[in-house]
Nucleic acid binder design. Structure first.
Lengths: 401, 401
DNA sequence: ACGGGAACTGAATCGGAAC
DNA sequence: AGTTCCGATTCAGTTCCCG
């Protein structure tokens, strides 16, 4: 049973028998009060949907009817994941509490991401919410664990625990007072805050459909509560991300959408799935950070932002000098000043109008101003030059009186 | 007006005049259906409160009355931060939407933290929610910004933008076809997902009171929407974290709690506030800055032995200069050059025959050679001096041929 | 007062260019 | 020839300004 059909999911769900679905994921309009549209990269197709309601009651009524149908088609071991943002969380909670009963509430999942900023007064929105309810207490659950984060003190986790006389948890110690190590680690249990990068503007996965969700998010949900061969239902399938995830993970799928364009897009994506995996998620943010102590140390005292990906620039000063942006490059150990200057000039060629400061850590005097490079000697280099110049003759601290 | 009083906040708030508070933070009992209790580390005192409610209706009624009082005491430029967990968010949203009106909803803040726990079926809860409403659109807001993501192409985004014929954003180019650099960057605005460690179990800050919040969280909230001298109100003050934060940040405060034990605890914490980094209180924010990286960074490139425990000497060079041993001292942040020189000279008195190099990180030109001190400016200081001298006029990178 | 348009924004991947 | 560099891209964005 693999279906993608253009119809209102209220009618669509009614065509399904009761108790057949293992997972219903829905990404309905968020009650944002505006209509959303987007044009494909090639500019030849425009996708749009409306999320305008007269009042919250009509939205609630609309959702309640559909959530009731969702409850009907779910197996007793099945679960529903309701995707929304702050505009609708409280409405969705009330509806789900009513239809699924509040004791079947499992988690309020926070999908958090970094995104473009703007000049909003207040805080930037950087998360959406996924409400997770099961139909019964006996829901299907595939436990997932993550590797330990590099910052975790692995030694401590591996230590066995005990309780002290007042019931406080403490690390277990043997008779000699040494800590006792446990047998094995299982990894950290998955939490309810998921940091998954937002679908990137350049991602191959992008279809041009507004509000498209990353496959990595849907894969996680599908794997948590279904096995191969299980049935995944998406009543607001949109660009079809849920169906692509289900199909590629060997689940059966049923999707409905009111838009014919969306259904066509979803079908073509299922036939030819494009998945882009996030480098950030694979490597972790730490992999992007260049924390070279040599460079960072020599940049102490500057008010700057560190540049992580340009061979000729180590930092850019926050305030400009005479209206010019200032880029700073530190001469590396084992690098000649001319090599450092070449790297800076190569970067400078593409940044006309910028001033470049080169922090020299080794070598003799050079005047590179003609090339637009200011050379600034490090303290150690300055002292070495004073020494060579013989200026230090008899420079001693005056003896105490 | 600094008050901590044992009473129901409904009565307590009624004693306040209208429109006086700049911030109301509240962390009311959650609708969890069980009683919290905890034992302090010394094991001699037991704090407990009841958050058992027969049905959500009475909880809503209880909260609505108090939120209405909160609205009354808030200034027009004031804000309320309502701390709740997933059992109460939708109830709190409804009450706040009703009393403050939904257009004054500002943010659903996610406080996320890492937590260890025995695996239960499902996802480990690792966040709490704070609802942020303002009384009016014209609320007080102190913008806070953070550094750029390491994945950001910082050298690129500093360039100015324009729009092409299709309305797509592109990088601006001048008549010569060169990219144009923009004005100074301020950093990234703060988002609505705050990762703040849960109170470290070993932290001194811990009082043993259940549901105690980290000071870091309260400090952030207080700084975002109040200035020094403003009034902070906490109607459910509990262990008094909000009041401690307000007091140490120079805000006035009013707190109520129904428990006499809680009020006593809060008062004692305000009188003798203990922070995880407790030195902060005496020294101010500058104490956050660690001296060691500052010194070590500025000594990079020297071949030296590090000297601790001597206020006047940070390092002694391994090779002498003209037969004289060289001691180096780095001017600290917040220390004048003359203070640094005095420290060095005091040390020099006990080391006659030594030469002293002082790495200057701030301030104007000084000649201290008469005292046997060589002053060496740090790279950042050198650049600042070049800037002030006006020498940089038209010092730009030569354009590529 | 209201609506529409322009200006501004940082994230993070892709893919062609450079080395 | 593979690897690294870096320009292009665009958003369930917002504010401000003008008519």
């Amino acid at each position: 049973m693999n279906i993608v059909r253009q119809m209102d999911c209220l009618d669509g769900l009614a065509t399904l028998p009761p108790c057949v679905a293992d997972l219903v994921y829905l990404d309905p309009p968020f009650f944002t009060g505006r209509s959303h549209s987007n044009t494909t990269r090639s500019g030849n197709k425009r996708y749009a949907f409306s999320d305008v309601w007269s009042e919250s009651g009509s939205y609630a009524g609309f959702m309640h009817a559909r959530v009731s149908e969702i409850h009907r088609v779910l197996k007793d071991t099945g679960s529903v994941f309701f995707h929304c943002d702050h505009n609708a969380t409280h409405i969705a909670r009330s509806i789900l509490d009513d239809v699924f009963r509040s004791e079947n509430f499992q988690s309020e999942i926070i999908w958090s991401y970094k995104r473009w900023s703007n000049s909003k007064k207040g805080l930037l929105q950087q998360h959406q919410t996924i409400l997770f309810y099961s139909k019964t207490a006996d829901f299907k659950w595939n436990e997932k664990r993550k590797g330990y984060s590099p910052t975790t003190n692995l030694d401590q986790i591996l230590q066995q625990r005990a309780r002290d006389v007042r019931g406080k948890s403490v690390y277990k110690r043997d008779a000699a007072g040494d800590v006792v190590f446990g047998s094995e680690k299982k990894g950290v249990p998955l939490g309810d805050v998921w940091e998954i990068p937002f679908l990137n503007p350049k991602a191959k996965e992008r279809t041009g459909y507004p509000t498209q969700k990353p496959l990595e998010l849907l894969d996680l949900i599908v794997e948590l509560v279904t096995d191969a061969g299980d049935l995944v239902v998406d009543p607001f399938s949109g660009s079809g991300t849920t169906l692509v995830s289900a199909a590629t993970l060997g689940r059966r799928y049923v999707g409905f959408d009111i838009s014919a364009d969306a259904v066509a897009l979803a079908k073509s994506r299922i036939d030819d799935p494009v998945r882009s995996s996030s480098m950030l998620l694979q490597k972790g943010a730490a992999a992007y950070v260049k924390d070279d102590p040599w460079v960072d140390g020599h940049l102490l005292g500057f008010d700057y932002d560190r540049v992580h990906r340009n061979a000729g620039i180590d930092g850019i000063l926050r305030s400009s000098l005479n209206g010019q942006t200032v880029c700073v490059r530190v001469q590396r150990q084992g690098e000649t000043l001319l090599e450092a200057a070449a790297a800076a000039k190569s970067a400078a060629r593409k940044k006309p109008g910028c001033m470049f400061a080169l922090i020299q850590t080794e070598g003799g005097l050079f005047d590179l101003k003609a090339d637009g490079l200011m050379v600034i000697p490090s303290p150690a280099l300055q002292l070495a030059r004073i020494g060579n110049s013989g200026e230090v003759e008899n420079l001693k601290v005056a003896k105490a009186a």
